[in-house]
Computed example of a mutant assay.
Amino acid sequence: MAWCGPAIRRLLPAGRSLTDYAGQRFGPLLRVWTLGLSLLYMLCFLTAELTALGAIVGLLTGADGRWAVLAAARGITVALMVPVVAVAWEGLSVLRLFLIADLLCATAVVPLLLGLWPRASTGAALAGSVAGLIGAVLPSALASGSLTQGLLAATFPTGVPTLAPFAGALLASSLVCGLWIWLRPARP
């Protein structure tokens, strides 16, 4: 694919998608066909995601009946779609959203992994995750002298990931969770 990129860029310098390329290179009929295939793929992907969400809701709620799980999954899905529609309406960068999601995961990964240790408690995991959130903002806030700038930097406004929020999240969550476990170990 590396050698295809320059050729596609020469043919379609302002192109943004596969459907743009298909329309320019092969005409409007193939553009519509490519768009239809893309929508079909997204529909299949969304169906798989919603099926998995239904299974997760069933496991979390302990619902026995199939219809109860389906109703709960539909309710949660509708609730989750509100922010999705808001994000789509605003036209935010998907890369930026993935970076923010990765940063949020970095705040909880160490406490969750330490949860495999019998000495770890729920309090340690929660305290470590909260410390990870603070640690994600703190390095940039200290560097800029402003909490607002720290929060802004943790949302990657340029869409370029920086090490400080991730390192701060991992270090803070590890330190607080480890200290909590050391000072107040869970009783078996």
Rank of each mutant, 00 (worst) to 15 (best):
W33M: 15
F45A: 14
L29Y: 11
L99W: 02
S93Q: 02
L30E: 02
S17A: 09
L142Y: 00
R184H: 04
A153F: 01
V137N: 06
S17T: 15
A2Y: 09
R187P: 01
T155D: 09
G132L: 05
F156N: 14
A22V: 03
R25Y: 10
L40P: 02
L50T: 13
T19N: 09
L39V: 14
G168R: 07
W182N: 07
I134W: 04
A136S: 15
L18M: 14
L43K: 07
L30F: 14
A167T: 08
C177M: 02
A172W: 02
V87M: 12
I76V: 15
L60D: 03
R16E: 09
P6E: 08
A106E: 07
S140W: 03
V57D: 01
L147D: 05
L11E: 11
A124F: 01
G5T: 13
A153S: 07
L113T: 05
R66I: 12
S144F: 03
R31S: 11
L163P: 01
L171H: 04
L29G: 12
L99K: 02
V69D: 06
G128S: 03
G65V: 00
G62E: 10
A72F: 11
A143H: 08
G135T: 09
L30R: 01
A186I: 04
L95E: 01
S144G: 01
G15E: 05
L53I: 10
S38P: 04
R184E: 01
I100Y: 06
M1P: 06
A125Y: 04
P188K: 14
L46N: 06
V137F: 12
A164M: 10
L147V: 15
G128L: 04
V94Y: 14
T107S: 15
P111I: 07
P139Y: 06
V176M: 03
T34R: 09
P161M: 14
W3S: 15
S173P: 09
L171G: 02
R31H: 03
L40R: 05
L138E: 12
P165E: 06
R187Q: 13
G135S: 05
